[in-house]
């Protein structure tokens, strides 16, 4: 216990004596952790966006105006019982018209007013548990005997079932690539940060190799020599991690809203819990790197 106090005191005294090196190490660790943190959070946000976009893949089942209510309800019930389907909503002709009117972008309001009657069909809007199964669900609908009875154009199933046939496979391919690439980038940044931090600590320790040599010569045990250096690494890493966490919180609180205002059509956001988790991970990783890096860098000087 007395030696722990001694280690902490020595670490603080040494940091003050070599204030330049200490600040350099803290800045290096801080920037490395910040970059890793920003990359992780960006990658998580991208993942969120990709998930959201994927969730928008659903099936619109256009119904014939003459479809019997009983048949439609039977179909709805069967779809609900399908484990791949998460929800089914019936959209009447009127609701479809209202939805069309309120769609952004075009001047739909005037367009609709010039029409006589309602050309839009009623539909079943089908959402999926996992959007990647869209083709399976579509196939099962087409094979259902009720399909020909209620579909708008039974002979051309592609016209009755709308689910972005062309873009869905490309979307999934792209989103998988984005996930893998962002994960690899984060991993690379972690490795770069590790090497960066290790080198900084190694330089700081090499600069004091006379001190270590003298300690060895006067018979200090390795534990006693190592203690203050490990403590110093831990303290510096801790300070740097806290700075990185503050910076990341700042970016999430103030930077993220700016970005999401610039691209309102993408759901740029991240859960507060996830940010906390990332921050905690940074703290732990920083501490481990600080202590382990010091340990590794000391090894060479402690060989007897």
């Amino acid at each position: 216990m007395r030696s722990i106090v001694y280690f902490i005191k020595e670490a603080l005294v040494n940091s003050r004596r070599n204030i330049g090196t200490a600040i350099g190490a803290i800045i290096t660790i801080f920037l490395s952790l910040l970059i890793v943190g920003v990359f992780s959070i960006t990658s998580l946000i991208i993942n969120n966006v990709v998930n959201e976009v994927e969730q928008e893949v659903n099936i619109s089942f256009y119904l014939s105006d003459n479809a019997a209510n009983a048949n439609v309800q039977a179909m709805e019930a069967q779809l609900r019982s399908n484990p791949l389907v998460s929800s089914v909503t019936y959209l009447s002709k009127d609701q479809a018209l209202q939805k069309f009117k309120s769609m952004p972008g075009q001047d739909n309001q005037n367009f609709v007013n010039e029409l006589s009657g309602n050309p839009l069909p009623a539909s079943l809007e089908i959402n999926l548990v996992d959007p990647e199964n869209v083709q399976q669900v579509v196939d099962s609908i087409e094979q259902n005997p009720l399909f020909t009875k209620i579909a708008q154009e039974p002979t051309k199933p592609d016209n009755s079932l709308l689910y972005g046939q062309e873009i869905v496979p490309k979307l999934f391919a792209a989103s998988n690539i984005i996930r893998v690439v962002s994960a690899i980038l984060v991993l690379m940044m972690v490795i770069v940060a590790l090497i960066f931090i290790y080198n900084t600590i190694r330089l700081a320790i090499t600069a004091r190799k006379t001190e270590i040599e003298i300690m060895r010569l006067v018979g200090a045990s390795n534990r006693f020599i190592r203690g203050p250096f490990l403590m110093e690494g831990a303290i510096q890493a801790l300070v740097a991690a806290v700075l990185a966490i503050l910076a990341i919180q700042f970016l999430v609180d103030f930077g993220l809203p700016l970005i999401s205002n610039m691209i309102p059509w993408l759901p740029v956001s991240i859960a507060g819990g996830t940010v906390t988790l990332v921050c905690f991970a940074l703290l732990v990783v920083g501490l481990i790197i600080g202590v382990l890096g010091s340990w590794l860098a000391m090894r060479k000087h402690l060989r007897v």
Partner: peptide, 23 residues
């Protein structure tokens, strides 16, 4: 290995270049 520090406590060393800590 762990006894080497204790050995060194019994063998004082003096060098040509003093090996003092300048600060």
């Amino acid at each position: 290995k762990w006894r080497i520090p204790y050995l060194r406590r019994n063998v004082g060393c003096v060098f040509q270049d003093f090996k003092l800590l300048p600060k």
